[in-house]
Write a protein that binds this DNA or RNA. Structure first.
Length: 463
RNA sequence: GCCGGGGUAACAUAGAGGCUAUGUGGCGGACUGCAGAUCCGCAGACGGGAGUUCGAAUCUCCCUCCCGGCCCCA
């Protein structure tokens, strides 16, 4: 079974073959840090967290780099509003970013380079591009990448240059640009802006160059996977390709992966549209597992329309899987069925789905099929101990990839107290004092402990 | 205008020529003091039209609607 990845470059699913056997380098475009991250960012972050987790599960040694754009027009504007230093503002949101992704159980990347701390490599790269004849310096100290120097513009975007020009917005163009499609790789300083010294005078990097430079600096000339939201395909990723290729003469990334947009009320959720849902708010209301489940319960490339009720639905669905785990953990009967055929088949199907361009939705369906089969065996006490622990092991594997299960249980003191309450309640029930027994159950439920009366005795779990 | 992704049962989503799709919700049943959980069963589908084929939700063409991108973006 080989992993297939949909490559935006070719628009096809391709067998994944890393440059160096057993190793994968992956760069995922991060955020511009001038505000809190929203659920749309979380989708991208969690999708690529899953991708990295899965690649590691497959045995690859993965190096994952994600950047922060901490020098940018909007950061400067926001900082000026607040009357603080732009880097102070970005530092604040970087810290919040980490708080948010930690709350979502996202595993940290191996490096988080910032534009502001990568000026040397950025300036070197700009210089290199100029020297190789792909960029020019204007009198005002702007450096533009010259579109006319490349023969095949639009490889990733798959559009002809003329078509893009005709669809262009009316933006104020610098008259010094030789071609309106030329883009800035270095911007000359304007009054009140943060700036760095460069051979072309004071200024700051263009948006696209930081990624090209940081990729090269951290991962080398060519990387295996480059990821990000599909709103970055043009112009950001297109231009990254041009810059890097101008310098290295080779390709930038072998596989380009782009996640679909999260939509809310039929529009893209976006900071600039102001229709966003902060992750920091969301995690107060929903556990991270539910949010992850919601986001991964659809294919990463498709659009996802957000509604509150679909998040509620994700919550109910996920509880089913949690229930399976706690049933397996507390399983005490000694049946004879190892369920090895069911478990093996589920594993096979699960990984088949994951290998098919990370089809988490399909993989999740397999989990529910398994849950039904297994709970049936549990209910009839025919599952063997061995089968139960086998199944639990698989759920553990799944959790390692998808992050769907919470940390286990309560400490022993607490569980001893719960057991005591259960004993008392059983006695009350025996005496048919149901109002009191129900009170205990209700109060425990309020505390997040669900009691269940079953044929095999009383079970409890966290909800 | 150009490029890309979509339209699947009440809802959210997989699937991609013939095989009972998954979840949530609904209805009926089993279990229960009640609740919960779970199991069993039922209903319900592939935007519209033509074509290819023994057979199309799946392939081809046309139409239609939605969303995204076209230098603010995950």
């Amino acid at each position: 079974m080989t992993l297939k990845i949909h490559n935006t470059l070719t628009n096809k699913k391709e067998n994944f073959i890393p440059l160096e056997e057993g190793k994968v380098s992956i760069y995922v475009c991060g955020v511009t840090v001038y505000d809190d991250i929203h659920l749309g960012h979380a989708r991208s972050i969690i999708v690529f967290d899953m991708v990295v987790r899965y690649l590691r599960h497959c045995g690859y040694k993965v190096t994952h780099v994600t950047n922060f754009t901490d020098v940018d027009d909007k950061i400067i504007a926001r900082a000026n509003e607040e009357g603080i230093d732009p880097l102070e503002l970005s530092a604040r949101y970087i810290q919040r970013y980490f708080e948010d992704i930690d709350a979502l159980k996202v595993r940290r990347a191996d490096a988080y380079p910032k534009a502001s701390e990568s000026m040397d490599v950025i300036i070197d790269m700009v210089q290199d591009i100029i020297e190789k004849g792909f960029a020019y310096v204007t009198d005002e100290g702007n450096v533009y990448f010259s579109i006319d120097k490349v023969g095949d513009y639009g490889r990733l975007t798959k559009q002809r240059l003329e078509d893009m020009i005709s669809g262009q917005r009316d933006v104020l163009q610098d008259p010094d640009k030789r071609n309106p499609m030329d883009f800035a790789i270095w911007k000359a300083v304007k009054p009140g802006e943060i700036a760095w010294d460069s051979p072309w005078g004071k200024g700051r990097p263009g948006w696209h160059i930081e990624c090209s430079a940081m990729i090269r600096n951290h991962l080398g000339d060519i990387i295996d996977i480059h990821g990000g939201g599909n709103d970055l395909i043009f112009p950001h990723h297109e231009n990254e390709i041009l810059q890097t290729e101008a310098v290295t003469g080779g390709m930038l990334a072998r596989y380009w992966m782009h996640n679909g947009m999260l939509q809310i009320q039929d529009q893209k959720m976006s900071k600039s549209l102001g229709n966003f849902l902060r992750v920091s708010e969301l995690v107060k209301e929903y556990d991270s597992e539910t949010i992850r489940f919601y986001l991964l319960n659809t294919h990463y490339r498709g659009p996802l329309l957000f509604t509150k009720s679909s998040l509620e639905e994700a919550k109910s669905s996920l509880r089913r899987l949690w229930n399976l785990r706690s049933e397996l953990e507390s399983y005490r009967a000694e049946g004879s069925d190892d369920a090895s055929d069911i478990i093996d088949e589920s594993k096979g199907r699960f990984y088949e789905q994951m290998d098919d361009d990370f089809n988490t939705r399909g993989a999740i369906s397999v989990l529910f099929d398994l849950a039904r089969e297994l709970t049936r065996l549990i209910a009839s006490s025919s599952l063997s101990k061995r089968g139960a622990s086998e199944a639990l092991g698989f759920l553990h594997e799944v959790d390692n990839i998808l992050g769907f299960f919470p940390e286990n249980g309560l400490n022993d003191d607490t569980s001893a107290l719960i057991d005591l309450l259960i004993d008392v309640r059983q006695e009350l029930r025996r005496r048919k004092m149901f109002d009191l027994s129900d009170t205990i159950r209700n109060r425990l439920k309020e505390m997040g402990i669900q009691l269940e009366d079953t044929a095999e005795g009383v079970k409890w779990k966290r909800i």
